[in-house]
Design a binder for these strands. Structure first.
Length: 229
DNA sequence: GCGACAG
DNA sequence: ATCTTGTCGC
């Protein structure tokens, strides 16, 4: 999967575009104490034909109170292919981002950043496409190997692939499964870990992502109740 | 050849 | 991602 071959030229072209965008990726420390932190996520209808992308900007220094939010809807135009998730989700997320009135300082994305076979997961892709700092925080592994982190909150272990540290497996909550954290754009691993942990004081999933998740699910449900099926 | 495989 | 109720455990 590191360099998959596709019969469909659409997918080979996606690989090329991924490579071009990856050249623009910048790994550097995040601003020290971001206040405006956003979460980004998507939700699909039951047929997998339409989906919603949303951003929620919240105040990380005031209990994650919501400052701004935006949702966009789109018809699905790319299938789910492991390693090419960005081509499915970035377009609708970019449209939602344009609708925001408040620019977040950093965005947590429900996907991987550099923890990707070609070091350019959806969170990194979104960051480069929009020119904004992003952090990848996924619920499960795409690639790489790791040791189970210690049971205490805050414990983490590196996610390794080909002798490289792609990200970290972080315990955000004692007794719960760890999350997979990796840098997106204009971010490094230390910054990503610190932000993800700070944004998840109580639940496994960082609060900004939880808020984005509920936003897009609500958008889908109110649209779904008005459609046949 | 056989699994694995973000959302 | 989505289809779905109750249920077990800290």
């Amino acid at each position: 999967m590191k360099r998959p071959e596709y019969a469909n030229p659409k997918y080979s072209q996606a690989l090329e575009e991924q490579e071009r965008l990856r050249a623009l990726l910048r790994l550097e420390p995040l601003p020290e104490h971001p206040r405006l932190v956003a979460g980004a996520d998507c939700s699909f209808n039951r047929f997998g034909t339409t989906f919603w992308g949303g951003f929620v900007v919240c105040d990380a220094q005031a209990g994650f109170t919501v400052v701004d939010r935006a949702v966009a809807r789109m018809e699905v135009s790319f299938p789910y292919l492991p390693g090419l998730l960005a081509f499915r989700e970035v377009p609708v997320l970019a449209r939602a981002y344009e609708l925001l009135r408040t620019a977040p300082e950093v965005t947590l994305v429900d996907a991987h950043g550099t923890a990707h076979p070609r070091r350019f997961g959806s969170a990194a892709h979104l960051g480069v496409a929009l020119g904004i700092p992003t952090v990848g925080c996924a619920k499960s592994r795409l690639c790489g190997t790791f040791d189970e982190p210690a049971p205490a909150r805050g414990a983490w272990s590196p996610l390794m692939l080909d002798g490289e540290t792609l990200g970290a497996v972080l315990r955000t909550r004692a007794g719960a499964a760890p999350v997979f954290v990796s840098p997106g754009h204009r971010c490094d691993l230390a910054s990503a870990l610190l932000l993800a942990l700070r944004c998840a004081p109580r639940y496994r999933i960082p609060q900004p992502i939880r808020l984005a998740h509920e936003l897009v699910n609500e958008a889908r449900k109110e649209a779904g109740s008005g459609e046949e099926g």
